[in-house]
Simulated scan of single mutants.
Amino acid sequence: MAARSVLLILLLALPILPARASEGIGAARDAYARGRFEDAAELARLLGTSEGNALAARAELAEGDYLAPPSERRARFEQAEKDARAAIALDPRNPEGHLCLALALGFLGRLDGVVTAHFAGYADEAREHIDQALQLAPTDPWANALLGGWNLEIVHEGGLLGQAIYGASIEKGIAAYTYALTLDAGNAAIAYQYALQLVALGGAWRRAEARQVLSGVLDAEPADASGRFAHQRAERLKRALDTQDERDLRAILADQFGADTRKADRATGWPR
């Protein structure tokens, strides 16, 4: 009788658990949409699911990229890496987990510099997870954007040697980014990263292309806080390109590609 009672209780509980999990992920997504990235990460992580850990990783990446002072970015990106690995461990077929891990490794690579990143294996592992995400979701805009970013970052940081080692190229990067924006034409975050990398590579025609890319997304209304932050960055970069403000362009590049130091905090106005 006792065994039957326990079984009955478990059976009655089964429909409740998914509902609670659904409510939890909903609260985390709402926090993310409102720009409360730390809260979103904590709420999502508590769910103990692949979806929750992937959202926690995405929130940590947003906090580190958009809100954290430079001296705190590393901790955010390292936590995002942990969350993304947890998401993949729970469900290897979750493309979001692979994308977030590739992003986290990319951000850490920017902080560490090309030599350290190479010996740490960031580029190789990031590419493996980008390829995994593309296999699982070939028309995902972010998966294709990350492929484009991977190629342009290798060329920017490693030059001809990087191209020879990793097989990256500007042509592959541009093609992947172009396809990503075909899939999601109003995505300011993708357009900004593409334009930023074009400017970093140098050359008048790349600046002209960057301006055109940014012009194509600035009329779109951001869907959430993350989109608004990306939109603001795109506006600033476009303005600097339009006015040929070399000082501001250098500041933008230094902030996005610079090292994680207290000096960088002061240069960007932190603490606020």
Rank of each mutant, 00 (worst) to 15 (best):
G97S: 03
R76N: 11
D131N: 13
G109F: 05
I130N: 05
A62W: 01
A84H: 06
E72H: 14
L47P: 07
L55T: 03
P70W: 06
L47V: 10
L67P: 00
L103N: 15
L111Y: 11
N53S: 14
H118V: 09
P70C: 03
A40N: 08
L61W: 10
L47G: 06
V114E: 12
L99H: 01
T49P: 11
R110N: 10
A80D: 08
G106F: 09
G97D: 05
H98M: 00
L55W: 02
E125T: 12
A123S: 10
L134Y: 08
E96R: 13
V115T: 12
L136K: 08
L61Y: 04
E128W: 02
A123L: 14
R58F: 12
G52L: 09
V115R: 12
A137M: 01
D112C: 03
E78F: 02
L101T: 05
F107T: 05
V114Q: 11
Y32Q: 06
L101S: 01
A89D: 03
R93E: 14
D131F: 09
L47D: 08
N94S: 10
R36D: 14
R93N: 15
A41W: 08
L134Q: 04
D112T: 08
Y32R: 07
N94M: 13
L43S: 08
E38F: 13
A80L: 05
L46W: 11
Y66M: 04
E42N: 10
C100W: 14
D112A: 05
G109E: 00
A137S: 06
E38T: 15
G106V: 04
L47M: 06
H129Q: 04
F107V: 13
G64P: 02
N94G: 02
A84N: 09
E38D: 13
A120W: 14
A40C: 02
P69F: 07
Q79E: 05
A80P: 08
A54D: 01
T116H: 01
Y122I: 08
L61V: 00
Y32F: 15
